[in-house]
Design a protein around this nucleic acid. Structure first.
Length: 116
DNA sequence: AGACTGACTCCAA
DNA sequence: GTTGGAGCCAGTC
């Protein structure tokens, strides 16, 4: 077992209720900027007993990626129960519901990645 | 060890 | 807005 898995789970557990994070975001915070897919694979293996809010992890487009494994409807229902709103096409607004791990004074600046 | 896979993401068309 | 291809890296066989 790599420490990466444990780190990812710890990060996911920190996502507050009513917020969502992306796979890439978790991977980046875990120190592996390109390991978004691995985050998904790790979460695939966890169980409900792990107390990990896996449903709060979605893809970078703000939509559900778990339809492949048949958990899409469940995840959507769980997120809606937390107050996350989805459009008709299954997209949610990451501007509003996206988790911002680092607290910034104005709470509105982008802190996760310094894009170009 | 080598090859395949995938709850992803970026970028071009 | 969508679709497709290449890159990515920890598991699994």
């Amino acid at each position: 077992m790599s420490g990466f898995r444990k780190l990812v789970l710890a990060l996911v557990a920190k996502v507050p209720r009513g917020k969502v994070a992306t796979y890439g975001q978790i991977a980046m915070l875990a120190g592996k900027p390109g390991a978004a897919r691995q985050v998904g694979m790790i979460l695939r293996g966890i169980r409900a007993e792990e107390d990990i809010p896996w449903q709060r992890i979605i893809n970078a487009q703000g939509s559900i990626s778990t339809y492949k494994i048949g958990a899409g409807e469940l995840q959507t229902a769980l997120l809606k129960a937390e107050g996350i709103e989805f459009s008709d096409k299954g997209y949610c607004d990451l501007k509003r519901f996206g988790w911002r791990p680092k607290i910034s004074p104005l709470d509105m600046t982008v802190d996760e990645e310094t894009r170009s």
